[in-house]
Amino acid sequence: MTELATTPASADATASEHSMQQAINAALRTLLAEDPATLVFGEDVGRLGGVFRVTDGLQAEFGDQRVFDTPLAESGIVGLAVGLAMNGWRPVPELQFDGFAYPAVDQIVNQVARMHYRSRGAAPMPITLRLPSFGGIQAPEHHGESLEALFAHVPGLKVCSPSDPADAYRLLLQSVRADDPVVYLEPKARYWNRSPGALTEPDLPIGASRVVREGRHATLVAWGAMVHHCLRVAEFAAEDGVELEVLDLRWLKPIDTAGLTASVRRTGRVVVVHEAPLTAGLGGEIAALVQEHAFRDLRAPVQRVTGFDVPYPAGPLEPQYLPNADRVLLAVQRTLEF
C-alpha cells in the first residue's frame, strides 16, 4: 500500500490535485447540486459512503431522499432507475462491482437500453450506471471484470471509462447530463492515485478520444487503468529510441473513429491494450475500424495485448493476467519489424 487519499469529503473542485475517488465524488456533488432531479443510490452508497468512499458525505449533504441505500439486489437497483427515469428523475445508480452487473443485465439490456426506442422517444432514460470496474486491486472473484465489450454491443447504451481524475470529473458530468443511458466504468486500480489538474467542465464532445502522449512510431490505444500503464510503456520505448503515441479512447461506445484514424495516419502502427479477454473484446472492433478507415496508412497488422480467455484470476495471479510492459513492448516490436 502506498499513498492513501484523504477522505473524498474534503474534495474541492478548485484544488489542483485530486484522486479519482475525490474527483468522482466532486462530480456527483456538482450534479446533485445543479439538478434536483438527480438521484444517487445503490448498495452502501448512503450511510457508508460507498465501499470505495466515492459517495462519501453525499447523503449528509443532500439528504436520504436523494442519496440512498438500496437492498443488495442489482436487478432491483437498475429497475428502480428505469421507473424513476420514466417519471422525470435523473438516476445515477451504482452497482458495487463489475461482476455484480451480471444480475442486472436483464434490466440494463431489456429496459434501460431500449425504453427510449420502445416508447418512440416518449421515455428517455437519462441513467448513468456507475460501475467500479476492471482489475488490479487483488480483489476476490467477481471484482475484476471488464464489461465494456458486453455493454458496447447493446444498442442504446453509451459506454465510457476515464483514465485520470480530471477526466473522470468531466466524463461523469457529461454522462449524467446526457439524456441517453451511459455505462460509466470506473477503473478501481486508479481510484487512489492523485494527479494534478483542476476539475473543470467537459471540453470534448461525447465520443471524443484524446492523445495523452504524442509519438510517431506506433499508437497504443487504451482506456481506464491501461492508459496509465501504456504511458509507462511509452517511457520504456523512449529509452530505446521508439516514440509511442498513447490514445486514451475514453468512449468505448461510440468509438472515436476519426481520432483513431488520425493517430494511425501519424504512426502507421497500432497496438490495442485492454484488460478484457481477447476473444470478441473491443480490440477486435478497433482493429476492424482501423483497417476499414486507414488501411493504406497501416504499416503492420493491428496488434492486441489483452487479458486471456479465462475467468479473471484470483489476486496473486493478476500480474500474469494483466498486460505487462513486456507483452506490450513485444507487440510494438512486431509492428516495427513487420
Binding site: 502506498t2 499513498e3 492513501l4 487519499a5 468512499r53 480483489a139 520504456f236 505487462n324
Partner: peptide, 17 residues
C-alpha cells in the same frame, strides 16, 4: 476508510521490463 473495503491499493512502483 479511504482505501475502500475490498481489495488493496496498488503500489505505484515503476514496472520492470
Amino acid at each position: 476508510a479511504s482505501a475502500g473495503i475490498v481489495g488493496t491499493v496498488p503500489t505505484e512502483e515503476r514496472p520492470t521490463r
